[in-house]
Every structure is written in structure tokens, then in C-alpha cells.
Design a protein around this nucleic acid. Structure first.
Lengths: 232, 232
DNA sequence: CGGATAGTTCGACTAGCATCGAACTATGAA
DNA sequence: TTCATAGTTCGATGCTAGTCGAACTATCCG
């Protein structure tokens, strides 16, 4: 029985606490060095190095050398999606959650998921764009003509997005909300613009903080749905 | 660092080859017994039992007792989705996927469930006897007078059934059809008679095969409802 | 009742692997 | 060159957990 299904090796890779810590630390899409990841995982650099070698071999991570540093990042947004989905599963497992600090509440409100907005605000953003008729579809999202005009006006180079390999729209299941938020190239571009305009800023870790005026600007732009409670 | 992120425990659970085999075996939504899952995983029943207890505790599986069997199924379609996503990740490491054979379709059509008929035909059988007015009740089934006469005429010793400890009628949830079929002593006796008359025969494993003339005989006996598609 | 089958629990064995110390390589700075 | 920092490799250790045999419980059959 040495020959398990493919799924087992990948899951086992994610299943080690140290590696899981590293992966979650990388979920904001940034690249981190071996030392930083070792600290995040709470292990020594040697241990981290061996873990990272295995994650790299499995193509869950990609490595980049810069001088004497080696930067690791998630190899693909798809990896982040799977990690989010696993968090969702872990939620219903219940029973064993301990760290319910204030940081946790902030994460549930708004956080970065690889490179796009997630959490309560992320789900609300997708709901608002759908209600405005800018994005249509249920499982397979696509941009409506009116939406394309809006996004261009918002400062997004839709031409570039549409020519790139990466899908423009992609649903991404939100672990804290149990509903989808907007991923893909458009999701990333939207967050970029929002951060650029100062409507939100990055907090510690994956936290995204919306100041009061930023929230008002979001509501003015995307409609009241944005701050409405997340109903179906 | 005993306290890893939530994600790790779930992933570790999936990461064991034996458990992963069990989960993939359950991915079609059917419910399987401990023995069947042990065989699917290539481990002994004791080992399977302990694995299943852990998967159950984590709410990845739900258990249902039926007689001396214990049926496990994925607790939620969401679990299957995550497993699919993990398979997608595993693809990039380069590996092969296994696909279910034609045997699966046969099992869904008609199979033996402990000692009575299950699957599409099993669900249809209960529907037909109800429509004929031979069996009444929704959750707690019982035999109507006209039904008792019919079953005696069909060659079933109803006296013996009614005196035995085992319940005469029992609903049994069908995993492939998601509706109830007829279990209990009567369900077992019915299948016995049908097999005796040669209207159906046991195939490999749990498969029950209905030849064309047997199907016609069933329809003549139990009414056209028997071969009608299973609609609520 | 007694025999048979399904499943659980317990205990012991074992293998794998995560971990870290120590030594080694590689890049950068002075 | 010399020192410092970043990371890798190797070897030894220790712990976890997967595994199965054996004994036990529960259900069904006659």
C-alpha cells in the first residue's frame, strides 16, 4: 500500500504544522525569505530549508534568488484557493479553534487572499458588482459590457487583463463567509486600485483596514450593497 | 509550536494514504461500510475503524448505523469539492488519475443492500408497492390488508415474518437515489422470491442484474411504476 | 441458546519524519 | 582578503502515528 492516491502526498505536504504555517504566511501573495518563513513557522532555518525544498519540489512554491536571499512565494493563485478552501473545511470541524483574538475579527472583516480582497468586504464587493450588473454569472463569472466600461473608468487596463493568460474573473470560496468573493486578474486589479486611492490600507499580516472615509468612498462607488450585511 | 494553524490538522487527516483512499472511494456520494472502505484503502478492518473514527470526529464523514453495518459518507458536498481541488493541485506534480468503471453504473441501477433490493430498482419497488396500496406510511411503513394478501400470494410466509423479532417493514435510505427503499424482513423476503423466480440474479459483488424478461415480469406484477423514472 | 459476521478497543511494534547541532557553500561588505 | 550573513546538507535523535493481532461487543440467523 505504498501507492496512495495522488491527493495524499499533496495533503500530507500541507498537513505538517510547520509547512502549513509557511503556506499561510505566504497567502498574502508576497514573497518571503527562508529566514522569515522559519520565524513564521517557529522552526530553525535548517528545518525550514528542508520543508521549503519539498514544497518547491511539489510545485506548491516557486523560488527566486536575489543576492544571497532566496524568496519563496505561492506558485499560483490556485494554491491560495485550495488553502482557503481547506480553511473553510477546518471551520466546520469546529472544536479546536483557540486563537480568537481581535486580529481574527479583523481578518474576517477584510483580508488579502493572495492578491485580491477577501472576507466580509470581499464577499460584499462581489455582491455589489453583481447587483450593479457589472459582473454576471454564478459559478463562471464574466464581465458585462457596462461593467467593462466601469472598470476601465475606475483605472483598470482591461485590455491587458483580457490578453493575459490568467482568467479575468474567478470565484474564490471565502472560508470565513462561506460564500464566494472575486478572484482572478480583475479581483487583483480592483484591490490594487482601492489601495492606490487610499480607500483601504494593508495592516499587519493579511489584514486590510478600511478607514471610515474609505468605506464611504467604496459605498459611493459600488453602491450601498457594499456595506449591507451579506445576505443571499 | 504544537499549535499549528487550523488548516494543518485537516490536511494531515487527508494526507494519510489510507484515509485518502477512503475519501476518494466516497467521492461519488455513495455510502460504504467499514469493510468496504478497509478494502478500498488496502488496510485491515481494525485500522480502517480507527481512521474512520478520526474522519468522523473531524466531521469530514458522517456515519449511519443500519443493522450491524455502519455506513460512512462524505458529510457534505463541500468536502468533495475540496478533494477535487486537491486533485487539481496534485496534477502539477505529474501523476495519474483512476476512474470508476462500468461496474459503478450497474450498482446504481440495482444492488443488494445487506439482504434487500437497493438502487434505482429498489427505490422504484417501494414506490410501486405504495402506489398499489399494499404498503402505507411515510416514515414508519406498515403492510395494508390488501398488501398482506398480495405478499402471501407472492409466496411470502407473512405469519413467520410477523412473529419474528425483525421488523417487517423498514425504510432504508438509498445512497445512490437519495430516497428510501424497502428494507426489513419483507424487503429481504421480496428479494428472495424475485431471485427464486429468476426475475433477477446476483452479479459480481453487490450487483443485481435484471434481464429483459425479468423486468417485464416485475412490471406486470408491481405495475408500471416499477420502471418509471424515479421522480418525487 | 450457539454460531457467524460486523465493527471496536487495546496493546505492542515499527517506520517515517520532523527537528536541531554542526559543518559546509555562497554572496556581500569593508 | 577577511568577516558576516543567508542558506544548504548531513547525521543523530526522539516522537508520533500508522499498522495489525487479539480480545471484546453488537447484531443477525437458525
Amino acid at each position: 500500500m505504498k501507492e496512495g492516491p495522488v491527493i495524499a502526498s499533496v495533503a500530507a505536504l500541507i498537513g505538517d504544522p510547520a509547512r502549513a504555517n509557511m503556506l499561510t504566511a505566504l497567502m498574502d501573495g508576497r514573497a518571503l525569505t527562508v529566514s522569515e518563513l522559519a520565524q513564521a513557522a517557529g522552526v530553525t532555518i535548517q528545518t525550514a530549508s528542508s520543508h521549503l525544498a519539498r514544497l518547491d519540489a511539489a510545485n506548491l512554491l516557486t523560488a527566486e534568488r536575489q543576492g544571497r536571499h532566496r524568496y519563496f512565494r505561492l506558485s499560483d493563485p490556485e494554491v491560495a484557493r485550495v488553502l482557503e478552501a481547506l480553511m473553510g473545511l477546518a471551520e466546520r470541524t469546529g472544536a479546536k479553534r483557540v486563537r480568537t483574538g481581535p486580529r481574527d475579527a479583523e481578518l474576517r472583516t477584510a483580508r488579502i487572499c493572495y492578491d485580491h480582497l477577501a472576507g466580509e468586504r470581499g464577499v460584499a464587493l462581489l455582491a455589489a458588482t453583481k447587483r450593479a450588473g457589472w459582473i454576471a454569472g454564478d459559478d463562471d463569472l464574466h464581465v458585462a459590457p457596462s461593467g467593462r466600461a466601469f472598470f476601465v473608468d475606475f483605472g483598470i487596463d482591461m485590455d491587458r487583463l483580457e490578453q493575459a493568460r490568467r482568467p479575468v474573473c474567478k470565484t474564490c470560496l471565502d472560508w470565513s463567509e462561506r460564500r464566494s468573493h472575486l478572484g482572478g486578474a480583475l479581483g487583483a486589479a480592483l484591490l490594487d486600485r482601492v489601495l492606490e486611492r487610499g480607500w483601504a490600507r494593508r495592516g499587519p499580516g493579511r489584514v486590510i483596514a478600511f478607514p471610515a472615509d474609505g468605506l464611504a468612498a467604496m459605498r459611493a462607488t459600488f453602491g450601498d450593497t457594499f456595506t449591507a450585511s451579506t445576505e443571499a
